[in-house]
Amino acid sequence: MIRIFISDDHVMFAEGLESMLTGEPDFELCGRAGNAADTLKQVPVIKPDVLLLDINLPDQSGLEVCSLLRKSCPDVKILALSMHNDESFISAMLTHGAQGYVLKNTGKAELCTAIRTLDAGKTYFSKEVTDTMMQSLMRERKAGTTREAPKISRREREVLKLIMDERTTQEIASQLFLSEKTVESHRAALLAKLGARNTAGLVKAAMHWNILNE
């Protein structure tokens, strides 16, 4: 029997969840809490097998609850239930110790599968969540491939060219029809991008990455 604890402030949803899960023979609902405080009080006592945790609790963030419970009762598997399909939330929950992430609009079958998978000691993500993670990962890989020339905007390229021509901010501004402040901002962005500390470093980096010849 898989002992399940539900933590959700949305009564209607929680009840719906309960009615859905009671039909499963291997599930046993062992408790329910409507806020973080109750959850943190009850879960260490009841020690359920799987905790269905809503990220958006009224009194405290589900992320923190997750993190605290991971320490106090490491054996409890936590399945995050969320309306958010955002990479930030997903990865945050994972880093805080959740074994699964399921959206609230998940169907019964998937939810049951998720609970069983977690109970078996594995992780589970619903398909939409996996998609989001995949997209993010791909992006990360694209951005993360360092030792590649940083991407420079057209404006920045123009500014950089003029900087390398030893033009002053004022001259650059009047030539590109920009305000001096904007030029300074471009310059600051360039310094940050190219990891340079001054104009000399900027020029050096620009030559290193061969930026202006792209």
Binding site: H10, F13, M20, G23, N56, M83, N105, G107, K108, A109
Partner: peptide, 22 residues
């Protein structure tokens, strides 16, 4: 929208799923 309506909708869906099994 997110919590109330979203929750209600999610609950509705769950109940519907539950019903289809029965």
């Amino acid at each position: 929208l997110h919590d109330s309506l979203g929750g209600l909708l999610a609950a509705t869906k769950m109940r519907l799923d539950n019903l289809s099994g029965k």
